[in-house]
């Protein structure tokens, strides 16, 4: 018989190694998340995905992104305790980043909007919420160019100057950022990130002259996939044309 857990009084089957969050998502049960991203390892920093464990090894509140599904586990996603604690967490975040759009969306989805209008002061519309998605993306897929610095109210994500040259320009950090504060833009032959002051050179296709990928990314492919080392210098369109020529001749 398949193993099951109970979420909000309903039984769901789960696969080995699956988390409660993943079982809930798969079955259309809403649990708000901020630091969670399906491409990254769970981190449990934002605590927005809290659920209450009624029956299991440790009853109480747990971050569902880190909670492994186990036979007989009984959890609630909308208990009084969950709603209270989650509400406080969202309000604390809102207090600090009142105009941040992604946060407003979470607050709306959770039915907490009342406190927004009373907030004052100058705030950025796009702010870093310190969710750490970009840091983990860089660690897991890039080269750990960025990391957290300082602590408490001064905590921030930054790239030490000495690590700038390590940046591949893969833009995984930009891709996973929930607020859009991490951004790269294309300038004359380079991509630039103003937040961390990182600039990465773009490679130019030797045939058509188009910029199509960063130099370090192409270098990485060249060293890791030797068979591609010649073809990778060309942009995808020229590469196809070149291949076609060879096949037809």
């Amino acid at each position: 018989m398949a193993k099951t857990i109970s979420i909000d009084m309903r039984e769901f089957e789960f696969d080995a190694g699956e988390t409660v969050l993943s079982v809930a998502k798969r079955n259309g049960i809403f649990i708000p998340t901020l630091c969670y991203h399906e491409a990254l390892k769970p981190y449990g920093a934002c605590r927005l995905c809290l659920v209450e464990v009624l029956e299991g090894d440790k009853p109480g509140l747990h971050a569902s992104c880190l909670l492994s599904a186990k036979q007989g586990l009984v959890v609630l996603t909308v208990s009084d305790l969950v709603l209270k604690v989650r509400g406080v967490l969202i309000q604390l975040l809102l207090k600090r980043y009142p105009k941040e759009k992604s946060l407003m969306d979470i607050a709306k989805a959770c039915g907490i909007e009342d406190s927004i209008s009373t907030l004052t002061g100058e705030h950025q519309e796009k702010a870093c919420l310190l969710c750490g998605r970009c840091v983990r993306a860089c660690e897991e897929m890039g080269r750990s160019v960025i990391g957290f610095v300082s602590r408490g109210s001064e905590r921030a994500v930054d790239a030490p100057i000495g690590s700038h040259k390590e940046c591949l320009g893969c833009r995984a950090c930009e891709n996973v950022c929930p607020t859009g504060v991490v951004r790269f833009s294309l300038h004359d032959g380079v991509i630039k990130n103003d937040l961390w002051d990182i600039t990465v050179d773009m490679a130019v296709c030797p045939i058509c002259g188009r910029s199509f990928a960063t130099v370090p990314l192409i270098d990485k492919v060249k060293t890791e996939l030797e068979a591609l080392s010649e073809a990778i210098s060309m942009c995808p369109a020229c590469r196809r044309a070149e291949l076609l020529k060879r096949i037809c001749v």
């Binding site: 300082s150 030490p160 000495g162 690590s163």
Partner: peptide, 23 residues
């Protein structure tokens, strides 16, 4: 700053993490 790079090299840890500890 140079010490951070030396330490990153010796420990094999990324410079960003060494800076994280130092700050």
């Amino acid at each position: 700053e140079d010490a951070l790079e030396v330490i990153a090299g010796l420990t094999g840890l990324p410079l960003s993490q060494i800076k994280g500890v130092a700050t």
